[in-house]
Computed example of a mutant assay.
Amino acid sequence: MTLSVYLSGEIHTDWREQIISGADGLDIAFSSPVTDHAASDDCGVEILGAEPDKFWHDRKGAQVNAIRTRRGIEQADVVVVRFGDKYKQWNAAFDAGMAAAFGQSLIILQPPEHDHALKEVDAAALAVAREPKQVVDILRYVLTGNLPG
């Protein structure tokens, strides 16, 4: 059985690469939003035309990106959402809420200092992991029934 996993959330660390490399050998197809910040910000105006107002510039990009995000979340068996230390990831919270609304299996990856702020998000998740390796261990267990180590 191939497991489809959508990796959402912060784009400033290598957590996605850690999960993908850690899951090497497992039958998992990974997908994610566009993580090239400039491409993600400018996709709407690059494809649909310039906007003089930054609000409409950003809105066009958000709407074009939402096509990929909605499809990825809806088609995933598991959605992993990472909340990092550096920035407030409003988009990650929205993706977690969307995954919960779609009834997708949700894993949250966050540091302990975010526990209080994300308590409602965490309550919707089936697991809250602290490290990418824990996510890999969950995925391995789901696919094989084997515990780590």
Rank of each mutant, 00 (worst) to 15 (best):
K88M: 11
T35L: 15
V45A: 13
R59W: 09
W90Y: 14
R59N: 02
F83W: 06
S40R: 12
A38T: 09
I73S: 15
V135N: 03
W90H: 10
P111I: 01
A50G: 13
E17V: 12
F83I: 07
D42S: 05
F94P: 14
I67P: 15
A50C: 09
P112Y: 00
V136Q: 01
I138K: 02
G72I: 15
D41F: 11
A66R: 12
A38G: 11
F55V: 08
S105K: 09
P111Y: 00
N65M: 12
T35S: 10
A39W: 13
E17L: 11
S40Q: 10
H114L: 07
Q18C: 13
A99V: 04
R70Q: 14
K119H: 08
I67E: 15
D115R: 00
A29I: 15
Q89W: 15
R59Q: 05
V81E: 08
I108C: 03
D58S: 05
V64H: 04
A123K: 07
L139I: 10
D42P: 03
A50I: 04
S21M: 15
A23W: 10
V136Y: 01
V64G: 04
G84K: 02
D58M: 04
A125E: 00
D77M: 13
D115K: 01
S31P: 04
N91A: 14
N65G: 07
R68G: 13
Q63T: 09
K60F: 00
H37L: 05
A123I: 06
Q75A: 13
E51R: 04
A117C: 01
L139S: 01
D115W: 02
A125T: 01
V128A: 02
G44K: 11
D41Q: 12
E113F: 00
Q89F: 10
A125L: 02
P52Q: 09
R16G: 06
A50D: 11
E46M: 12
V81H: 03
D95T: 03
L126C: 07
G49R: 05
V80I: 08
G49K: 04
S21R: 13
A100G: 14
S31D: 05
D95A: 11
S105P: 12
V135D: 02
A50K: 11
V34Y: 08
H116D: 11
Q18K: 13
G97S: 09
K86S: 11
K86I: 03
G103M: 12
A117F: 00
S31F: 08
G22L: 14
A93Q: 10
A62Q: 10
L106P: 03
V45W: 06
R68F: 14
G44E: 02
A100C: 05
D85G: 09
I73H: 10
L26Q: 08
T35F: 13
D122M: 11
Q89P: 09
F30V: 00
